[in-house]
């Protein structure tokens, strides 16, 4: 993200690419040495990926998973941020809900998922709710940290100059929370898509998780790797073309 002195943007890009190429080479070498069905070569995986992309199946499942990720991500960020701000701002609320939070952090994702399916039925609302419920406590913890660190002196400036409440929120308060929101969004994205796969595997008729389960029944490792890579590519793209530019834009003043 931040370039050290002496490391240009181009050099940074070369390093990222080199790391990726090295991983690919290691995989390829290992697959050739083992020469086994349980570790197909990158070429075989690519072939499978291409076939599913052409048939349209990949896009159907990818789309379903992405929609669930997006919905649960937005819900978790909004709810978690609101609660985090409240707890960070009030010692009383913080102490009261601290036990709940610890509980929420430690309930296994699997338990939430099963309970949501049992209580609300095997539908997408239950699936999204289960994933969001898993992520909300971690958002709360990060944002609460940010809310505690908010500079009271700068808020006092807004008070002294009678800055209207909405402007105070968007230009004085939230900018201080942004680094925490980004940290939360990053870890959130990677956590959420993993949980979404479990939710799909347990009770949805489509999505990457559902498809992985089908591959698993046939020990189709190439299929599993193909779908995994497809989704990982999406996550990397979101990071590189959405989160990182957004962060550079919003936190540019720190440079």
């Amino acid at each position: 993200m931040r370039t050290e002195p002496g490391l240009s943007r181009a050099a940074e890009r070369r390093l990222r690419f080199a790391a990726f190429a090295l991983l690919l080479l290691l995989w390829w070498g290992l697959a050739l040495v083992l020469h086994s069905d349980v570790l197909p070569t990158p070429a075989a995986v690519w072939e499978r990926l291409w076939a599913h992309a052409v048939s349209g199946e990949l896009w159907r499942h990818l789309g379903a998973t992405l929609a669930r990720v997006a919905a649960s991500f937005l819900i978790a960020m909004l709810v978690g941020t609101a609660i985090g701000i409240l707890l960070g701002g009030s010692r009383r609320l913080d102490v009261f809900f601290d036990g709940w939070l610890v509980l929420g952090l430690n309930i296994p994702a699997l338990v939430t998922i099963i309970l949501c399916y049992v209580w609300f039925g095997l539908n997408d609302a239950a699936a999204v709710l289960a994933v969001a419920a898993n992520k909300i406590p971690t958002v709360v913890v990060t944002v609460r940290e940010g809310a505690r660190a908010v500079d009271r002196e700068l808020l006092a400036v807004a008070t002294a100059f009678r800055v209207p409440p909405l402007r105070r929120l968007t230009r004085v308060y939230l900018p201080q929370l942004l680094p925490y929101l980004f940290a939360s969004a990053r870890s959130g994205l990677s956590l959420i898509w993993k949980i979404v796969l479990v939710v799909e595997l347990l009770g949805r008729p489509n999505g990457i998780g559902f498809r992985l389960n089908a591959f698993f029944q046939f020990f189709d490792i190439a299929g599993i790797l193909a779908y995994t890579l497809a989704f990982a590519a999406v996550v990397l793209a979101v990071e590189a073309w959405l989160l990182r530019p957004l962060e550079r834009r919003l936190l540019g003043w720190r440079a």
């Binding site: 002196e153 700068l154 006092a156 400036v157 002294a160 100059f161 009678r162 230009r171 900018p175 720190r254």
Partner: peptide
């Protein structure tokens, strides 16, 4: 009066603005 300006011990400018 409600129309107040203030100067603090430190400048207290918003670093992100």
């Amino acid at each position: 009066p409600p129309e107040r300006g203030m100067l603090f011990q430190t400048p207290r400018l918003m670093p992100w603005l």
